[in-house]
């Protein structure tokens, strides 16, 4: 592992986009940032700008309108980048998979590296998912 990879793995910046979730997973991602789970001890920071981000956390079933926004955000992120899909909806559409405005899962829109299951995904699972994504990023 060279110094660039090592430092990247120690300070991944996270971009979160809600592509159509019920909020359950979103508030769990926010809970990761706050004192009890404190994701910042791994050097992770939640940023609002896609050009600053290394990891894209996507929650929710993608719908036809948010798919375009999601694609835009993904395209703006610099390489290397990884995508973590959080929650049952982001994986397959979950309980909404047969709704008329729902695309089943976000992997039809952006390539997903790590799938975090759960409805809603627990903060521990989300953190584990991000750590796995970082390993994958360093193998590239």
């Amino acid at each position: 592992m060279n110094i660039l990879q090592k430092s990247r793995a120690k300070s991944p910046w996270i971009l979160h986009y809600d592509a159509g979730a019920c909020n359950g997973c979103d508030i769990e991602i926010l809970a990761c940032l706050t004192p009890v789970y404190d994701i910042e001890r791994f050097g992770m920071v939640n940023v609002g700008n896609p050009k600053h981000a290394d990891v894209l956390l996507v929650t929710g079933t993608c719908n036809k309108r948010s798919a375009r926004v999601l694609k835009n955000l993904y395209d703006q992120m610099p390489d290397p980048k990884v995508v973590v899909a959080v929650g049952a909806c982001a994986l397959s559409g979950g309980i909404f998979h047969e709704c008329y405005n729902v695309l089943q899962g976000v992997d039809g829109t952006v390539p997903v590296d790590v799938y975090v299951p759960g409805c809603a995904a627990r903060p521990e699972a989300i953190m584990e998912g991000v750590m796995m994504a970082l390993e994958k990023m360093n193998q590239r």
């Binding site: 159509g20 979730a21 359950g24 929710g60 719908n63 309108r65 948010s66 309980i95 405005n101 409805c119």
Partner: peptide, 30 residues
Amino acid sequence: IGYVHRGIEKAAERMEYTQNVFLVERVCGI
């Protein structure tokens, strides 16, 4: 708006009324 629209009201017509309890819980996770 429209970035989170899924179509839950229609899905509620497809599922059985007892199953809908789980569907409406996911209208809002908060």
